[in-house]
């Protein structure tokens, strides 16, 4: 038995992590070590991908509004105050050009590559083609700073803006 060979808990063993000892592990133990190693690596995503940079930032939210076409509709999203910081109240101003939606649009805030739960900003009409609402971008202890705002325009579709926030 490996337990006997290694001695009791706390006892020193010179070849504890050596190749010989690992070879002697029973299949279940080997499976456990493998799963544990893979899990730990995946559990610390920031070690593998320090800032979630796999997805490109397509909007400089600190400089001005994020703009995109949703089919033929021009959609602009302004976040203020600037710079856009996490953990503070933000005002989201959405501009929709052309034909106006039948219902109020809304924004879902989320982190790129990490599920943070549903964080919805409900918008209300402020003027013709302008909708406004408040929300908070929360801070992730992992240190990742890249977020996305998915704008949903009823009966038209959705458009996604990817940007970074300041901690």
């Amino acid at each position: 038995m490996l337990t006997k060979q290694l001695g009791t808990y706390g006892g020193a063993h010179p070849t504890l992590l050596g190749e010989e000892s690992l070879v002697r592990l029973n299949p279940k133990a080997r499976l456990f070590v493998t799963i544990f190693c893979v899990a730990t690596l995946s559990l610390c995503p920031t070690l593998v991908s320090p800032d979630g940079k796999t997805k490109r930032i397509d909007c400089d939210a600190h400089a001005g509004p994020c703009v995109a076409y949703l089919e033929a509709t021009l959609v602009s999203l302004e976040m203020s105050p600037k710079p856009v910081k996490a953990m503070q109240e933000l005002t989201f101003t959405l501009g929709i050009g052309g034909e106006q939606p039948a219902a109020n649009p809304y924004i879902d805030l989320g982190m790129v590559g990490m599920d943070m739960g549903r964080n919805r900003v409900n918008l209300t009409p402020e003027a013709d083609g302008v909708f406004r609402g408040t929300g908070v971008i929360v801070r992730c202890p992992s240190g990742r700073r890249i977020w996305k705002a998915t704008v949903f325009v009823p009966d038209v579709g959705s458009v996604e803006f990817v940007f970074d926030v300041v901690y």
């Binding site: 337990t3 000892s21 592990l25 610390c44």
Partner: peptide
């Protein structure tokens, strides 16, 4: 359920220390 646990504990303890350091640095 494991019969040979000591080596797992040793490996796990190293990983725990690494994770703990990661937590402190992040904090």
């Amino acid at each position: 359920w494991l019969r040979s646990r000591e080596i797992i504990y040793r490996i796990s303890s190293v990983m725990m220390i690494a994770v703990g350091i990661y937590f402190v640095v992040r904090a």
